[in-house]
Amino acid sequence: MPTVVFHKNGATHQGEVKENTNLVVRAGIRQFPFPHLRYECGMGKCSKCACRVMSGAQHLPEPNWKEKKQLGERLAQGYRLACQLWIEHDIELAQDDLEQAA
């Protein structure tokens, strides 16, 4: 099972997830530790769930059109939309405390 390490507000949360898990879905049903994940629409329209991928990016698919539209230049800085990712390998993410521009 993939391990997810999630950094937010100076704290580190870690947990295992089943393969093909979406973290926004896990956050929505309050499964630890992902209720700490900031998100809103879950459909790639708002970019509230933008996270910086610190490790494991090589296992992710290429950004889809929603991520390209919402994140623009932030893609090059390692950001991805958590709502658009289905986790199949270990990953480490950080969600900055600042609100992301939509």
Rank of each mutant, 00 (worst) to 15 (best):
L71C: 06
Q14E: 15
K68C: 10
N9H: 14
R80A: 03
H36M: 02
L71A: 05
E40H: 15
K45I: 10
K48M: 07
G42I: 10
K8M: 05
V24P: 14
P63K: 10
M1R: 00
L85F: 10
H13N: 15
G15A: 08
V4Q: 07
P61D: 09
E19T: 07
C83K: 10
Q84H: 11
A82Y: 04
K45A: 06
A50I: 00
G28I: 10
V17K: 01
E62R: 06
L81I: 01
I29F: 13
P63G: 10
K18M: 09
G44K: 13
H36W: 05
W86I: 10
K18T: 05
Q58P: 04
A50W: 04
T21Q: 06
E99K: 00
E67D: 04
C83G: 12
E92V: 04
F32P: 05
I87Q: 03
C46H: 05
E99Y: 02
K68R: 12
Q95T: 08
K66R: 13
A102G: 08
G56K: 02
K18N: 09
H59C: 01
A11D: 14
V17N: 14
V24T: 11
K68N: 13
M1E: 11
D96A: 05
L98A: 12
L60C: 05
Q14I: 02
E88S: 08
V5K: 02
P2W: 03
T21C: 06
W86H: 13
A94F: 11
F32T: 00
